[in-house]
C-alpha cells in the first residue's frame, strides 16, 4: 500500500542493512566452507590443498567428537530444564500480589546483566573454590567435606553457573506471558469450579506454551555457543569440552583450520535446525 516513489525510496533505505548482513554472512561462510575442504595448518605448512571430505570424517571420527556432543547436549538440556521449570514457578510467584514487587523483579533479573566472564569468575572463585569458596564454608558448617566443584562435578557446575545467568531471561519472558493472560478466563474457570492445580494445568500452562517454546528455542541458540563460561572456568578440561569449545581449540589452539572449519559447518547446520523452528514461530507472529 504505497506509491512507486515510496517503494523505491524504501528499497534504497533498506539496502545498506541488507548489503552489510549479506556480506557478513556470505564472506565468512564461504571461507569456512572453502577451508573445510582443505588441509590447512597455518603454523605447520599452511594450506596444503584440497582434501575432499577428509576433515568432515576426521572431525566426526576423532575421539573427542562424541564426548563433545554428549557434553553439549547435557549442558544445553540441563540448563533448559532448570531455567524453564524454575522460570515457570518464579514467574507464577512474581505474578502474585506482594509488597515490593518491583524490587524483587529487579533482584531476580539482575544476573542476566552480569558479564559472562564476571559470572564465571565469581562463581569459580568466590563460591566454588574448594578452600575459600562460600559453598565450601557452607559444606563445612554442616560438617561435610567441601566439594571440588569444577573438577569433581564440572558439568554440573557449569550448568549451575549458566542457569543462574539465564533463569532471569526465562522468568522475565514467562512473566510477561502470564501477565497477558486474560484474568476473566481464570475467573470463568474458577466459577466453573476448577481448583488451583487444574487452572494451572488447563489454562495457564497452555497459555504459556508459546512463550515456553520461544524461551527454549532462543536459549538453545545462545546455549549452543556458550564460550566464555567454559573458557574462564575449566578451559575445556574435565570433560567440559562442548562442540563450540572443541572447534575453538581446533582453530585457534591447535591451529588446524581445515578441521575446525569442518566442525564449524557442523555447528552451523545444528544451529540452523533449531533456528528453523524458531523462525517458523516468529514468522507466524509476523502475519498476525
Amino acid at each position: 500500500m504505497a506509491t512507486q516513489h515510496s517503494r523505491s525510496a524504501a528499497r534504497l533505505m533498506m539496502a545498506p542493512a541488507v548489503f552489510l548482513l549479506l556480506v557478513w554472512m556470505l564472506v565468512p561462510l564461504s571461507m569456512t566452507l572453502w577451508f573445510s575442504f582443505r588441509r590447512f595448518l597455518p603454523l605447520r605448512g599452511g594450506d596444503q590443498g584440497f582434501v575432499g571430505f577428509e576433515n568432515y570424517t576426521r572431525f566426526v571420527s576423532s575421539s573427542s567428537f562424541w564426548p563433545a556432543v554428549q557434553t553439549t547436549l547435557i549442558i544445553v538440556v540441563g540448563i533448559l530444564i532448570i531455567t524453564v521449570c524454575f522460570g515457570i514457578l518464579l514467574s507464577l510467584l512474581l505474578d502474585q500480589p506482594m509488597w515490593g514487587q518491583g524490587i524483587v523483579r529487579i533482584l531476580v533479573i539482575a544476573p542476566f546483566f552480569v558479564m559472562p566472564t564476571v559470572s564465571a569468575l565469581v562463581w569459580k572463585n568466590m563460591f566454588m573454590d574448594p578452600v575459600n569458596g562460600l559453598l565450601a564454608h557452607l559444606w563445612r558448617f554442616f560438617g561435610a567435606d567441601p566439594v571440588v566443584w569444577l573438577s569433581d562435578v564440572p558439568i554440573f557446575s557449569i550448568v549451575m553457573i549458566v542457569s543462574w545467568q539465564w533463569l532471569p531471561f526465562a522468568t522475565l519472558i514467562l512473566l510477561t506471558a502470564i501477565q497477558s493472560l486474560d484474568s476473566e478466563q481464570l475467573e470463568a474457570a474458577e466459577m466453573d469450579g476448577a481448583p488451583v492445580l487444574k487452572r494451572f494445568w488447563f489454562i495457564i500452562l497452555p497459555h504459556l506454551s508459546r512463550a515456553i517454546t520461544i524461551v527454549i528455542l532462543i536459549q538453545t541458540i545462545f546455549l549452543l555457543s556458550i564460550f566464555a563460561e567454559i573458557f574462564v572456568t575449566t578451559g575445556g578440561a574435565f570433560g567440559t569440552r562442548t562442540l563450540t569449545y572443541l572447534i575453538f581449540q581446533r582453530v585457534l589452539e591447535s591451529q588446524n583450520v581445515g578441521l575446525g572449519s569442518a566442525g564449524g559447518v557442523y555447528a552451523i547446520i545444528l544451529a540452523n535446525i533449531v533456528a528453523l523452528f524458531l523462525m517458523r514461530i516468529v514468522g507466524k507472529n509476523l502475519d498476525a
Partner: peptide, 10 residues
Amino acid sequence: MLPAVGVLYP
C-alpha cells in the same frame, strides 16, 4: 543465529 565459532577463523 550463525554460531560465531563457525566463522571464527575467516
